[in-house]
Design a protein around this nucleic acid. Structure first.
Lengths: 234, 234
DNA sequence: GTCTATAACCGGATAGAC
DNA sequence: GTCTATCCGGTTATAGAC
């Protein structure tokens, strides 16, 4: 019944880890973040409290794991969308909607989720070194959104766009968190409108006669941008 | 030596309250928010733990009080700036700088501060009903920034601008929190540039020929905007 | 209404045994 | 890798003094 072959490797541990994470997310969905105790998570998962802490250094790290899982799922969803769609606007909108669908079940505790993420000291912060991988993967999705689109975009802009779309993505999530409309229709409406406008704006900014203004804005951005994956966070 | 006339009223209590708040902020500055215990605050203030909780229902409420104090101080600083300056850009920039000066000493623990504030459930959230007064006062400052400027702005835009400037203010604070440059020079640079650009944009948006676009954007905003001081937060 | 003192509760986090 | 015991600090409760 059981095998412990060398391919299984960390399998046993991974299973426990996954069990704890899923249990935690279920409880978060049911009762919210603050209301869910680590003891309750451990109990329902059928493990000891200390064991939960063996896999997740803190309650916040459960959130980080949730981030990671969501990224994986979004990347998967994005793949099929990006195979199908070829216009910038539709590719972009598709990814945004996929993300909103993905996180909707967690809207209830997403506030706390984002709150802890807002602290620059926190490893959960989207700008932190710990988040670099997630940030890089996320940005990669948006690079693919752009690269696959039938649209000629100058190199300087094209280089910055994935980061900008990722920032936009963050802004949408922030809006979504504060959106109490049923089904988050308000956020979807906002995304519809802004993606359309911004897609046009990108096309416009790509015109040759826009070059000077484009250069000026990109220069300002470069000045302002912290070297995100760098020394800034000691 | 002591009088307890009717004018003194809550004076005794107010003094204790202020003492506790100042002590807490000192400790936050010195050691950060998480590292500062309520017991330590009470001890250094020379009051009993229970007394601290008599004046502040929770540790978070100390932050809310800090917000309030900062608002007061900003309003005071703004008054003298707005008496002096008459161009939109200089009035606006003056207020932004005054605010940055005011909060600089607290940069260290501002992250946590903003983090707890980011949770929609939290009373600290700038959009929450509990924050309505602070939000209203803050918005009033920006209304004054606009009203006193020598610039003709159409009514529809003028009505929305204070809220928009307040949103911008929030965005600046968010940027500031993540700014690890010495003296927050990066934030100041960003503010310099963006206030200049946005001031021009406001002037541009006020031109008669911009009316249709302006109307369209204001309409979208109205659709998106939650009735902030409303039922949304039950 | 303001304040002290003290004990207790609860839950996040850690230590160390198995 | 898993468990039990323990610590620590936010918070609450109580009972009483000015």
């Amino acid at each position: 019944m059981e095998r412990q072959g060398e391919q299984a490797k960390t399998s046993r541990g991974e299973q426990t880890r996954a069990l704890i994470l899923e249990t935690a997310l279920d409880l978060f969905k049911e009762n919210g973040y603050e209301e869910t105790t680590m003891r309750a998570i451990a109990q329902r998962a059928g493990v000891a409290l200390g064991n939960a802490y063996y896999y997740f250094r803190s309650k916040e790290h459960l959130i980080q794991a949730f981030y990671g899982r969501t990224h994986q799922e979004l990347a998967g969803a994005a793949r099929s969308i990006l195979e199908r769609e070829h216009g910038l606007r539709d590719r972009w909108l598709g990814v945004m909607y996929a993300n909103l669908d993905l996180i909707e079940p967690y809207h209830r505790f997403a506030g706390i989720l984002f709150a802890t993420a807002a602290d620059p000291q926190s490893p959960l912060n989207p700008f932190s070194p710990e988040s670099e991988e997630a940030r890089r993967e996320s940005t990669a999705i948006y690079a693919e959104v752009i690269d696959g689109a039938k649209l000629r975009i100058p190199r300087d802009l094209k280089q910055e766009l994935p980061f900008l779309l990722w920032l936009y993505h963050m802004g949408v999530v922030l809006f979504w968190i504060h959106d109490s409309s049923p089904g988050r229709t308000r956020t979807r409406h906002m995304v519809d409108r802004t993606v359309a406008i911004l897609s046009n704006l990108i096309a416009l900014a790509s015109k040759p006669f826009m070059r000077p203004l484009r250069k000026a804005i990109l220069k300002l951005m470069a000045e302002l941008r912290e070297d995100v994956p760098g020394e800034a966070y000691s």
